[in-house]
Design a protein around this nucleic acid. Structure first.
Lengths: 215, 215
DNA sequence: ACCGAACGGTGATTCAAATCACATAGCAGT
DNA sequence: ACTGCTATGTGATTTGAATCACCGTTCGGT
């Protein structure tokens, strides 16, 4: 099958509500790219010239501060786009976030100027943009709730649930250090809490893997 | 002057980018309301049937959790609307937030169904919606940063700066207890930190008022 | 099979913030 | 002016989490 055909299938499957004309324009204007796992797609402070439409794989979006602290905001799955890239693209602002692939990921890069045209041209596009804002807003609120109201053990549970859902597996391949970074705490704290969860038979721990049992 | 004329003036002044036809429809479909200071406009869990367009005054938007904890998300000033009410209105979902007036406030209540029509009918309306999402997203990120990365003294400073800007005054009429609630901490902590700031000559404290000096 | 790096476990200590306990000050209503 | 309520000040104690110190384990590379 031609490469173009594969890309078209991916796009239509991930974004079933897009009109045919919109799909054609995306294919014309956009650039198809594949990134390996664990690749940083965007750093804080970079300028954004295009939005990524996720076609396959999984992306993590982080917030970073000036001292190198970071924490996980949310995941992006196929059919989703980052609200922030829509924001920044529109304002030609520097990115306030960092994006990183979890698994190998296919995306379609769409240039900014094109996007704003589509807003008036394609109903399905602005519905998509609105829906993107909506779901990202909800996700961000959930993250905020946890940071503001919950103690570290509750936040860890929430983190693991979210990871399970995003990655569709009970077997997470991740180190304690990485979890600590994503919750903006220290490795020791996570190790201790995970150990307690193991004693309650909620998880099973092995080097670089966490098996989720009661989730 | 007729009441309708006053309302029309307020609306046009606060939302100068709205098309004439849109202003007419808002006046036809919407309901003009005035709330006194310190009135709760919306509680968590309520269902949202309309969005508020702020015409004058000032509103605070809080996040609440199930145990009665709360914290301030951001302010809404004239010309602004709450992104969340747009979200929930669209999804017919319960409100995840609480809204409260700071000063006497005039708003225009717009029913949900009408709003979605406007999305395709009035370019200035969907531009407004997009812009609302954008700015609320930015505000929410700033709030999140503070909770996630900053210590309580830094968060307090940020809080005071934001309050000054929203209320356009150096003389805040607010108790330590109220600040504590809005930062989800305890009154003693705020009293102590404010005392330290007074010693540094950053503020001047009096019963129910805080005078901001170096801000 | 050995080495070095990354990973994970765990006690001891420090620290910021929450909580407890109580005192004092200022304002509002009678 | 008295009363009572709300707001504020401040020490003492507790607590959850961060940090420090150090250990053994596992894995990948040669």
């Amino acid at each position: 099958m031609a490469i173009q055909q594969v890309q078209d299938d991916l796009l239509r499957k991930s974004y079933p509500l897009f009109e045919d004309n919109l799909v054609s324009e995306i294919e014309e204007q956009g650039e198809f790219k594949t990134f390996p796992a664990n690749e940083v797609l965007m750093r804080k402070g970079q300028y954004i010239r295009s939005t990524m439409l996720v076609l396959s794989g999984l992306i993590k979006i982080y917030r970073e501060d000036d001292e190198g602290n970071e924490f996980l905001m949310y995941y992006l799955r196929p059919g989703e786009a980052c609200a922030l890239s829509l924001v920044c693209a529109a304002k030609h602002e520097a990115s306030p976030i960092m994006a990183k692939t979890v698994t190998e990921t296919d995306v379609m890069m769409v240039p900014v100027d094109t996007m704003s045209e589509w807003m008036s041209k394609f109903k399905s596009w602005y519905q998509f943009v609105i829906e993107t804002y909506r779901t990202r807003f909800d996700e961000l609120l959930a993250t905020l709730d946890n940071v503001a109201f919950r103690s570290m053990d509750e936040r860890l549970e929430f983190y693991l649930k979210r990871a399970k859902e995003a990655q569709q597996t009970n077997l997470l391949n991740i180190s304690h250090q990485e979890i600590a970074n994503e919750l903006n705490t220290s490795r020791e704290v996570i190790s201790r809490l995970l150990k307690k969860m193991e004693q309650k038979d909620m998880v099973k721990l092995n080097r670089n893997t966490i098996e989720l049992k009661k989730f």
